[in-house]
């Protein structure tokens, strides 16, 4: 998938993955995709809820070797 920006939030504990994701979203344009890598287990439900509240779409997410990856399309 074509990501406009990749955010490495691995090793960061809550709330930092969301704080950084929110900031990184400001750097991309509407319709572009931000790729987020995180290891905090809580990131999945929090990112999903946060994206929903902002109207962003999580177009794909994966989990491999304890790394969660999200592709978020900006509203």
């Amino acid at each position: 998938m074509d990501s406009a920006k990749v955010l490495d939030a691995k090793g960061l504990a809550c709330p930092m993955p969301i704080v950084k994701t929110k900031k990184a979203m400001e750097d991309i344009n509407s319709g572009e995709i931000l790729e987020v890598h995180a290891t905090d287990k809580g990131a999945k439900s929090d990112l999903t809820a946060w994206a929903k509240s902002g109207g962003h779409e999580i177009v794909q997410n994966t989990e491999e070797d304890n790394v969660l990856k999200f592709w978020i399309k900006k509203a």
């Binding site: 709330p15 969301i18 704080v19 929110k22 929090d46 809820a49 946060w50 509240s53």
Partner: peptide, 8 residues
């Protein structure tokens, strides 16, 4: 309840 990401 108010999720933290709504308070950033």
């Amino acid at each position: 309840n108010e999720p933290y990401f709504n308070l950033l």
